[in-house]
Design a protein around this nucleic acid. Structure first.
Lengths: 160, 160
DNA sequence: GAATCAACGTTTGTCTCACTAACGGTTTCG
DNA sequence: CGAAACCGTTAGTGAGACAAACGTTGATTC
């Protein structure tokens, strides 16, 4: 499109995001995830937490104690980054990090009673935040969305 | 869950991502977007491009030339980051950046013939990549997904 | 039983993305 | 004319995803 052709375009068309971009699945995903991440991060920050905290605590509660490598596998956090997350959780006394007597390479991470209380709180906070995130969708649609996302994610983790 | 309770858990349960995490919409979104971004970035890198290049070129092609601020609005790229993107595009001679005679604060960005050719190529590449991204879904499901994502995104951009 | 190899936790560093703050130059408005 | 708003640009922040390498420790193999 030349300058001259563009001249008789309505001002709106010149300022809005073109359809070509709005039709890209990858773009919609990125943008929505950016919003979602911000919403979740801000919500969790209000209770002095971050989303990795929740992932680790939930994994400990549901699957029991484990080494840092195990937790890394369960949560998807890289083992390089797990160090910092566990430092934060240990500072707040939500988990305990103790050397494994059976394998001195490992640490055994255990959730503390305080960690369990915190997890219950985070569960409530996250429920509220997800309700905000998915506000425009009714329950059936939320389910549908989760199904589609999960299928895509599973496909790409198997095919990794 | 105490250490003792966890002891009689099957090894699988101790290693897999717990349901509690897999049910989080925000988490599925993040993870899928990470995969998607990597897929797209790698695919575009093979033709010496990045996704912002596509966004800018497509916006120029579909809505005509504009200032950097206009492009920023159309593409969602921050004006701080737009500078670098336009430098890369100008280096490759895909766009032209000229001072606006009517308003000396502005630059007018125009797509070049070469940019138009490049855009056509990127369109094909991106079509292929999206096909890979959405491989497990049939056309109706892809449509359904886009509809849901768009509704959520629209809601959160209006309510911003 | 010594040598090799793998796993673990840790440190360091890279790259991208979204976003803020501040600057000098320019236009617009009161 | 002066203040406010806008433009492009620079610099920097914080998070997320990831790679490389190191010392320690365990398992395997000759």
């Amino acid at each position: 499109m030349t300058r001259a052709e563009a001249a008789d375009m309505p001002d709106d068309a010149a300022r809005e995001t073109p359809d070509r971009l709005r039709r890209q699945a990858s773009r919609q995903l990125s943008q929505l995830t950016a919003r979602s991440d911000r919403l979740i991060n801000e919500g969790l920050a209000r209770v002095d937490a971050r989303k990795w905290h929740y992932a680790v605590l939930a994994s400990l509660q549901d699957c029991g104690p484990g080494s840092q490598a195990t937790l890394s596998g369960r949560t998807g956090i890289y083992r390089s980054d797990m160090v910092g997350v566990l430092n934060e959780l240990a500072e707040r006394e939500l988990v305990e990090r103790a050397p494994d007597p059976d394998d001195r390479r490992r640490n055994v991470i255990t959730i503390s009673p305080r960690g369990r209380r915190h997890l219950r709180r985070l569960d409530k906070v996250l429920d509220g935040l997800h309700d905000e995130l998915l506000a425009p969708l009714d329950p059936a649609e939320r389910d549908q969305l989760m199904r589609l996302l999960t299928r895509l994610l599973d496909h790409h983790t198997r095919t990794s």
